[in-house]
Design a protein around this nucleic acid. Structure first.
Lengths: 131, 131
DNA sequence: ATTTTGATTTAGAATAAGTATAAATCTATT
DNA sequence: AATAGATTTATACTTATTCTAAATCAAAAT
């Protein structure tokens, strides 16, 4: 029961997220749609992002900023944010199962997964800083 | 250079956070202040929470909800959220340094730390569910 | 004791992100 | 062509938070 109905609007939103090299916010998606000659209502963009998220075609990221970001990679992975320039990169090194098991033991929860936002300074910012 | 100037308002806000058994939002803090007979402006509560956060007397938690939560424990620890009831508990099991080192290696970042939100189902919700 | 200065609080307006709603439009099926 | 169902649009609303200007407070200097 997972029929996917990709309307023009949803397809266009999906294309933006998939073509992005960064992790755009809803507002970013809006702007890029305009750049490509589209003009959808805000509600439509939010609806589309939610629809695509529900269908597991994209992922919604809550990285601690006010606005959600979106990612076309839906496999299990985490993110790292540069404290200096705000850039967001992917982290594919998996969380140790062992750690999750210990958390389950500590808390009495049945652990489903974890969202991790690593903080650090990216290579470029580090080299700039040294000057 | 870390003089701490605890005005009546800041002290009262701090007391609320410190006395809380949960992790209150700014709105929760407002309500509890009123319960204790105070009546501060919203701006004051937000200013106080930021002030206390800056002075490392409390911690601001961004757990993926729209509103920030606050925690009087400032030592390094993580949080686990129940997907069923929304309850938030503390996780003190530390994330392995080894994992952070591997993330640094993968991304080229200098890793400073990580914010982790574990998701799961708490013991109470699990037993309710079984019925 | 009074003035000055700087910090803080207040009330309320402003902003940002996102949701809700109702009418209009589109799409597929009868 | 008519109906039903889903989607889009425009716009109003909500929530969380920040900003602003005026009022108040507190400490230091006169």
């Amino acid at each position: 029961m997972k029929t996917i109905n990709l309307t023009t609007q949803r397809q266009a939103v999906y294309d933006i997220v998939r073509d992005a090299v960064d992790h755009p916010t809803a507002a970013d998606v809006m702007n890029r749609l305009v750049e490509r000659g589209h003009s959808f209502a805000y509600g439509t963009v939010y609806n589309s992002l939610r629809y695509l998220t529900d269908k597991d075609m994209i992922r919604e990221l809550k990285l601690g900023e006010t606005a959600s970001r979106y990612d076309a990679r839906t496999d299990d992975h985490q993110h790292i944010v540069c404290e200096a320039c705000g850039k967001v990169d992917e982290v594919t090194t998996a969380i140790p199962e062992e750690w999750l098991a210990r958390v389950a033991e500590e808390t009495g929860y049945e652990v489903e997964g974890a969202h991790i936002v690593v903080e650090g300074v990216c290579a470029e910012c580090r080299s700039k800083r040294k000057k």
